[in-house]
Design a protein around this nucleic acid. Structure first.
Lengths: 200, 200
DNA sequence: CACTTGACTACACGATCGTGTAGTAGTTTG
DNA sequence: CAAACTACTACACGATCGTGTAGTCAAGTG
């Protein structure tokens, strides 16, 4: 996951390869043999270190969660508005984000707990920030999902922009797009009242 | 996909079961035997009608796309702001949405084309609506991804709200949350200028 | 020195996968 | 009536999956 390349222990290389392949292909889509090959070890060693595929996934969950909270703690002190939750949008954690999203979609409790933590962080942040939505919980949940969406659809967004959003240039563009979404109100208060009446 | 239950042709039942299971478990996670069992037919009949798993997926892509465009055409005439793109948020098409998202994540061209079409629709809509983002393309791509995000994380959002967002009540709540996101600017123009300068 | 321990590989197992083949029953068509 | 076609099932195939077993090798440890 980091700059250190081949001088990692085999266990760490397996875990990193698992996070990458699980994230790219999904849990079912990445076999133990694939992961072993990507880590440059035998498939038996994966079992030796992690016991089973499910245990390997749990180990990946724990590591991704830990690293994620580390990074978000760093960002919270060094950056501003952009770091408003523990599942922040940042190129440094692309592979981790990818993996966590896949893990969530496969029903991981650890990954889901991270999401719920992000929702609560956003709740507190929005309250302190003076934002007063109709339903703060729903508002925070929507924002948490939104912050992950450009990761999920990174291929589609990249295709729409004509450049890879994992590159600095593309990342800057989609970041700008999100800033626009967050700064330009689409719906006026009058329209919202109209919609709410219409629903009743 | 519709109210009509068991009086569908076997071919249609297979296709509907495939869309549901592919959407729930991912393409790799749903086997042809699972789909056949869910449709109440033999696994051989799946092959008879669709040839291969890949062909079945393409048939699901085409059907989901067609249905999606149908529904969005209906919504465009009957509803207002909520129907601003062909991949609209609407409980009627939950299974289709779910499937299309999985299909996108597995690299389907048809599903990706739907996404790109949505981006263009949002581009035109936002221009006609008088919205002037810094980067209209990036803005539209971000919005397209955002509109799909609550589907992707439906389990997590439901857990955060304490109620299933596929029920009318839960759907109304998360819909309200999205309305709040779209109506309350998080970032002021001054803050945005500050961020842009900081990046340079 | 003998003994243990942990990292690691090679290989074989049963289950399940997508796919292929053969055949049956019912309808259509000439 | 026979031939052809369509919907459909049963069953077997090779490949790949997660897992299990046995063993090698190097580094400690008494």
């Amino acid at each position: 996951m980091d700059r250190r390349a081949e001088d990692l222990t085999a266990r760490a290389r397996i875990r990193d390869a698992a996070i990458r392949l699980f994230g790219e292909r999904g849990i079912e889509g990445a076999s133990i043999r694939d992961i072993a090959a990507a880590a440059g070890v035998s498939s038996g060693l994966v079992r030796h270190h992690f016991g089973s595929k499910e245990s390997l996934r749990e180990a990946c969950d724990d590591y991704a969660k830990e690293r994620m909270l580390e990074v978000s703690a760093e960002l919270a002190t060094t950056e501003g508005v952009a770091a408003l939750d523990p599942v922040a949008l940042h190129p440094r954690v692309f592979p981790l984000q990818l993996y966590l999203v896949r893990s969530m979609m496969d029903g991981s409790d650890t990954a889901t707990a991270l999401f719920l933590g992000a929702v609560e962080t956003i709740e507190e942040w929005s309250a302190g920030y003076g934002i007063e939505p109709q339903d703060r919980r729903a508002y925070s949940a929507a924002l948490a999902a939104i912050k992950l969406s450009v990761f999920v659809f990174r291929d589609q967004v990249s295709k729409a922009l004509g450049e890879d959003i994992t590159t600095p240039s593309g990342y800057a563009r989609i970041g700008q797009g999100l800033l626009d979404v967050f700064s330009i109100p689409i719906i006026t208060p009058e329209q919202m009242d109209a919609i709410r009446k219409q629903e009743k």
